[in-house]
Computed example of a mutant assay.
Amino acid sequence: MIARVIRNEDLVRVPWKNGGGTTAEVAAFPEGSGFDTFGWRISMADVASDGPFSMFPGIDRTLIVVEGSGIELDVEGIAYPLDKASPKLSFSGDDITTGRLLSGPIRDLNVMTRRGQFRHRTRFVESGVGLLSEETCAAFLVPLDGPFDVTLGSTIHSLQVLDTLRLGAMQDLILLSGTGRAILVEIAPEASA
């Protein structure tokens, strides 16, 4: 698989692990794996109220606010406000974490990798040329502020806000054309795995 578009409107919402909200799985490995068996997982969650986050022992997490005013995460007693200026935080799924909405509901993008098997990196990108790191086994591009066209060879993939383009391992140049920012998630196997 070189590339596949996952439309935001096609995502299926399921209950959180702790039952306190809903999440839509974008992709997971292995495909069809559950909360206790995935090697990596990408999802989008709708958070409408304050409350505790599910514990994911052995999992490294990154949360990115993609819609709404923001949320303050309390991770083991330390507060981290996430908003438009500073929308992402990486933390351990082992840590006791609670969320407090800053002003109304949010939607967030969650990236989770099982420690010892996979690791992940997230970065914001804009129009221009991108290249995946050599170790990347799967990557995901999600437009945040406006539509993006992603050109791979002679194929153009058109994405709307919060659509996802899933990319396999590749060393080709990725041409990005759009307004605003997108988030690029790269997943790589741990060296020891």
Rank of each mutant, 00 (worst) to 15 (best):
R115P: 08
R119S: 12
T122V: 12
R114G: 08
P81R: 14
E126K: 11
D145R: 04
R123C: 09
G99W: 06
V111K: 04
F148K: 01
Q117K: 07
L109N: 07
S154Y: 08
L101K: 06
V150K: 01
T98A: 12
D145A: 06
I78Q: 15
D145E: 13
T113F: 02
F124W: 08
E76K: 08
F91K: 00
L132W: 11
G93I: 02
V111S: 10
G153T: 10
P87G: 09
T97A: 07
P147M: 00
S154C: 08
E126T: 15
V129K: 14
L132E: 04
F140G: 00
R100G: 04
M112S: 02
I106V: 15
T98S: 15
T151D: 03
A85Y: 07
S92Y: 00
P81M: 14
R115D: 04
L109A: 06
S103C: 04
P143Q: 02
E126W: 04
N110W: 10
E76L: 01
F124A: 14
L141N: 05
F124M: 15
T151C: 13
P143A: 00
V129S: 14
I106N: 09
L82Y: 12
D83H: 15
D95E: 01
I106R: 06
L141V: 07
P87W: 08
P81S: 14
I156S: 06
T136W: 05
V142M: 14
M112V: 06
R123N: 12
E76G: 01
R123M: 12
P143T: 01
V125Y: 05
N110P: 05
T113I: 03
I156G: 01
F118R: 13
D149G: 06
L109S: 09
T151F: 04
V142T: 11
G99P: 09
I156V: 15
S92L: 03
R123T: 09
V150F: 07
S133Q: 15
P81L: 13
T113W: 04
Q117W: 07
L152D: 00
F118K: 02
T136V: 12
R114D: 08
N110H: 12
I106M: 10
R121M: 06
Y80T: 10
R100C: 05
R123Q: 13
G93F: 02
L89Y: 08
G104E: 00
L132V: 05
V129W: 10
R121N: 09
A138L: 10
D108I: 10
V129F: 12
A139N: 08
L144N: 09
N110L: 07
V142P: 07
T151R: 13
T98C: 09
P105D: 00
V125G: 09
T122Q: 14
T136S: 15
E134H: 11
Q117F: 05
G104M: 09
V142C: 10
A139D: 04
R119T: 10
S90K: 05
F140H: 02
D108V: 05
M112G: 08
A138D: 09
K84Q: 14
L144G: 11
S133M: 07
D83Y: 05
D149A: 05
R100N: 07
L152E: 01
D83T: 12
E135R: 14
G128R: 13
V111F: 06
R100E: 05
K88V: 03
T113L: 04
V150D: 01
M112C: 09
S103Y: 00
V129D: 07
S92W: 03
I106H: 09
S154V: 13
F118M: 14
A79M: 13
S103M: 04
D95G: 03
G93P: 11
T122H: 07
I78A: 15
L141M: 10
